[in-house]
Design a protein around this nucleic acid. Structure first.
Length: 599
DNA sequence: TAGAGCATGAAAGGAGGT
DNA sequence: ACCTCCTTTCATGCTCTA
């Protein structure tokens, strides 16, 4: 049984170019296979925990969350299990972390000296842990290869060379990752090693790329790597604690608006060398996050300064978002026709019923839920209890609720939430973009509430039009209902090839439907899970379509958004941690694009 | 069982005052 | 600098109903 399932939606009629790839055959793409059996405990990172060659006991299963937590951070599973066994169940995370770190130090020390100090074994560290599973791959003592391995190794070496990696890099990766490592793991290793070499050749061994890690685990390793780099910069006084914190600009207009006086628009910026394309990239997420999130996002995206923009400057609804991109910022132009920036012009029929004491001119952020009928009823009763203007406390209650739930005045003393097609209008999508095909009203609100504001994104992407007159190849991650695709299409940029990755089948169907309705001439290929999009698959796709010109996406905001009262856990949250998949995939594409084949 | 209805605050930043 | 008050926020999970 395999838990990594590649879902491939059929490409359109002109997709013959892809005919020689069997998208349902995992072997060819070397997707890592994760065996699942009742005797193994799968973890988020795809690691199967087996304690000392035996199945995890029931005692361990009670700690499985804790184990998964640490394994998810990139720590070797066996060391975590060993640490919990040693210091006892119920110990604090901090104590477990300390113990695991001690193990790692001992392990690194033993590697440096080519042996294990006998004292270490008596200090609670099990020497046998070094000689199986993923720990083994750290050892430099496993050089022996049989002739079969050599043959397989040569093939992999050739493949890596074709991908543009040097013989030394490929050899080192294969040596460190072991003979069974897939191409995906090897390329991820090389990618991380390049960063490590360039920025900190003396990084501690525990955060160097390590064998047998899946793509997502390498993302976590990279996070630790960046954290280490950041610490070192702080230690060297390169950045101060305060000066580094990214602050939201006021007004939130980014590098300029279409309506600005041209002299007030920022015309130049210097991008870090590492950020330069190809490919261009464009990343989006909510502006108002827990502290430090945007610093982390910027840091992982080559220290590019985010551009914070409120969509209230592009439509009649606020949408405060941050965008990190390496696009030119000169000669932007907006989508036509421009959307009205106030409620009155957007919804003229509301004017008749709008009370003078409701001074709103634009709506707040469109979210995934709407005000209930009960609330609408409460407001109606509160207002109609008075002949004239209600007293201040009633007005305040009504206004607060109207702002909170984006209610419009649609009748005498009657408020109502926006309809889904009004969401579409405000967000810049075609009318009925999310309608039909079996999607419920609730799901339409959810999909629309999670999407781009098309006009805002299109303004930023407009600079691509003169650069790609013959069309563009894009890799669209976390595509949602296709905000980026719609923006590019409305800008008149031909979509030659779109590789779209979106978890929700409902959303994939919406994009597919839009693609067909707009008579696109290019190819739309969609996947359902960013975590299965490994380096080899990206390389295969890039090879077929001639490389990616743009990597665009907004990773999940669930754990960042202020509306989330349950799990606003920051970038480490269950969904928002997928940001690191964007970083990983972008890195992979950059790596591929910097190769000779696409220069 | 799917879809709809509904209740559930806290975190962060800004404004204004002392 | 510090405090208080005000405003805003790509949501989650439970319950009800057809």
């Amino acid at each position: 049984m395999l838990c990594n399932v590649l879902s491939f939606q059929e490409s359109n009629a002109s997709g013959d170019d892809f005919g020689d790839i069997d998208w349902n055959t995992e072997d060819e793409l070397e997707i890592s296979e994760i065996p699942i059996s009742t005797s193994n405990l799968p973890t988020p990172g795809g690691v199967t925990i087996v304690c000392n060659g035996e199945e995890s006991s029931s005692a361990h299963s009670s700690n499985s969350k804790l184990i998964q937590h640490f394994v998810g951070m990139g720590f070797p599973d066996k060391l975590v299990v060993k640490a919990i066994e040693e210091i006892g169940e119920g110990s604090s995370e901090g104590k477990i972390l300390d113990t695991v770190l001690t193990y790692l130090e001992l392990q690194n020390s033993s590697e440096e000296h080519g042996c294990i100090d006998s004292d270490q074994s008596t200090s609670g560290y099990d020497e046998s842990l070094l000689h199986d599973s993923d720990i083994d791959s750290w050892s430099d003592d496993d050089d022996e290869e049989n002739s079969d391995d050599l043959s397989e190794s040569e093939k992999k070496l050739q493949t890596l060379q074709k991908m543009g990696y040097s013989v030394d890099e490929a050899t080192e990766a294969m040596h460190r990752c072991g003979p069974d490592a897939s191409i995906a793991v090897l390329t991820d290793f090389i990618c991380a090693a390049q960063i490590a070499r360039a920025e900190a050749p003396d990084l501690p061994a525990e955060i160097k790329p390590k064998a047998n890690y899946t793509c997502s685990q390498n993302g976590k390793l990279k996070r630790r790597l960046y954290a280490e780099l950041d610490n070192r910069k702080k230690q060297r006084g390169m950045v101060g604690e305060d000066s580094e914190m990214i602050r939201l600009p006021k007004p939130m207009v980014g590098f300029g608006l279409p309506t600005d006086d041209q002299s007030s628009i920022v015309r130049e910026r210097t991008l870090p060398e590492q950020a330069l394309g190809p490919p261009y990239f464009y990343y989006e997420n909510v502006a108002l996050t827990p502290k430090g999130v945007w610093d982390e996002i910027s840091k992982c995206l080559y220290y590019v300064e985010p551009e914070f923009v409120d969509s209230k400057y592009f439509c009649a609804a606020a949408r405060k978002r941050g965008y990190v991109h390496n696009l030119p910022i000169q000669n932007r132009f907006p989508l036509r026709p421009l959307l009205p920036l106030n409620i009155e012009e957007t919804f003229p029929l509301t004017k008749r019923w709008w009370p003078s004491w409701d001074s709103r001119t634009y709506l707040n952020c469109l979210q995934t839920a709407i005000g209930s009928a009960k609330l609408q009823d409460r407001i109606r009763k509160a207002v109609e209890a008075y002949d004239g203007e209600p007293p201040e406390h009633v007005k305040k209650y009504v206004i607060d609720q109207c702002k909170k739930w984006n209610l419009l005045w649609v009748g005498r003393n009657k408020v109502a939430p926006l309809e889904p097609d009004e969401f579409e209008l405000l967000l810049g999508f075609p009318r009925n973009h999310t309608r039909g095909g079996g999607i419920s009203r609730t799901d339409r609100y959810k999909s629309l509430g999670n999407s781009f504001q098309v006009n805002t994104v299109a303004y930023h992407l407009s600079v691509l039009k003169p650069l790609f007159p013959d069309g563009i190849n894009i890799l669209s991650l976390f595509s949602g209902i296709g905000g980026a695709e719609v923006a590019l299409h409305r800008l008149g940029i031909p979509l030659n090839n779109v590789v779209s990755v979106e978890k929700s089948e409902i959303n994939r169907n919406i994009v597919r439907s839009w693609w067909e309705q707009t008579n696109q001439k290019g190819n739309l290929i969609d996947f359902d899970d960013v975590q299965t999009l490994d380096a080899y698959k990206i390389e295969s796709l890039a090879g077929k379509i001639g490389g990616f010109d743009l990597v665009v996406g907004g990773s999940p905001c669930n754990n960042l958004a202020g509306s989330n009262r349950v799990s606003r856990d920051g970038l480490e949250g269950k969904e928002s941690i997928l940001f690191y998949e964007y970083v990983r995939i972008l890195d992979t594409v950059k790596n591929i694009m910097s190769g000779r084949r696409f220069n």
